[in-house]
């Protein structure tokens, strides 16, 4: 075929192509689709897989008693932290006193309980709440993947994994170190090496039962008026105030299980061996029982355990400020 003929044919085809309607429109639609996809994808890239209420949506009544400008921590002198003084306490269970004690609460084959000495530390009076955790998520949305939908600001945060609880603790420590709203006592404690973190199980137990070896935070008798257990729902933190409890802490028995920073290991307790047995699967101690547990599981010495990746509606946490 000569070049001229080929060119003529090409021109004819092109002309034919122009007779067919909609090419410009079709190209425009296609380009619009591509732009839409790019725009939509860029929106997706910023999306977290988190369903969380923003703090602004919380009911004012539910945040009463908490400070919105201080990360929704409790409105008291130490932002809800309580000092636990230096000293020793009796850890583990004495079956003679506590008939409900489990075998894993026994100190050793020859001893029922052991004495543990702890330096002073602060512990939260309440479990960490939905509002407090939401403030963290709002500030750093990529730090947690928790899925929770409660609109109630003052119930304990649940359905969070162990690493997410630690991430919250790290964030709060940074905030409190940098903020002018942090009470002086706490600030100086933090500046002298204190860290905001999950409690060890020894710290938790000492705070819960004090130094007199009581079975429950309030004493040795069961008291359903002082703790949320054997019920059907989580309650807002502090719903059952307990002035009789050691250090006046709320919900150390029941409401939600509280995860700790201690790996599940047989007693006798020694924080020095926490870094041993690395080949074992990680399993972390949780304390205090939950709203759905019976009285046997809300004793101060009871030891539960949970995988670090588990989310559960009856597992939450509280924080300590401790010099590790």
């Amino acid at each position: 075929m000569s070049k001229a003929t080929a060119d003529n044919k090409a021109e004819a085809m092109e002309a034919d192509e122009h007779e067919i309607p909609g090419r410009a429109l079709g190209l425009s639609i296609m380009c619009a689709m591509i732009v839409f996809v790019a725009f939509w994808m860029s929106l997706q890239s910023g999306q977290t897989y988190l369903t969380v209420n923003t703090t602004s949506t919380f009911d004012a009544d539910a945040t009463a008693g908490f400070l919105a400008d201080s990360w929704y921590l409790p409105d008291d002198e130490l932002l809800g932290f309580v000092l636990i003084p230096t000293g020793s306490f009796l850890m583990g269970s004495n079956p003679a006193l506590d008939r409900l004690a489990y075998e894993n609460e026994r100190w050793s084959s020859s001893r029922r309980q052991g004495t543990v000495d702890l330096p002073e530390y602060y512990i939260g009076k309440f479990e960490v709440t939905v509002a407090q955790f939401s403030a963290f998520i709002e500030d750093s949305p990529d730090q947690a993947n928790s899925v929770f939908s409660s609109a109630v600001a003052n119930i304990p945060i649940t359905n969070i994994t162990w690493p997410e609880a630690l991430a919250y603790a790290r964030w709060l420590e940074q905030q409190m170190k940098a903020s002018a709203n942090t009470p002086e006592d706490l600030k100086s404690f933090l500046e002298s090496g204190g860290r905001i973190i999950l409690p060890s199980e020894a710290e938790w137990e000492k705070a819960a039962r004090g130094t007199d070896g009581r079975v429950f935070p309030w004493g040795n008798e069961t008291r359903s008026d002082l703790a949320n257990y054997g019920s059907t729902a989580v309650l807002p933190v502090g719903s059952k105030p307990c002035t009789e409890c050691a250090h006046g802490l709320a919900d150390m028995s029941g409401n939600v299980w509280e995860i700790t920073r201690s790996p599940m290991q047989a007693y006798p307790y020694d924080s020095e061996d926490d870094a041993e047995n690395l080949s074992d699967d990680a399993l972390w101690v949780m304390r205090g029982g939950s709203y759905s547990d019976t009285v046997g599981n809300v004793r101060a010495a009871v030891r539960g355990a949970v995988d670090p990746g588990v989310r559960n509606g009856s597992i939450g946490f509280r924080l300590v400020i401790s010099k590790l």
Partner: peptide, 12 residues
């Protein structure tokens, strides 16, 4: 965090 959630104790 990811290693810990997968139960690797050293990561925790």
């Amino acid at each position: 965090s990811r290693g810990c959630e997968l139960k690797f104790r050293a990561a925790c």
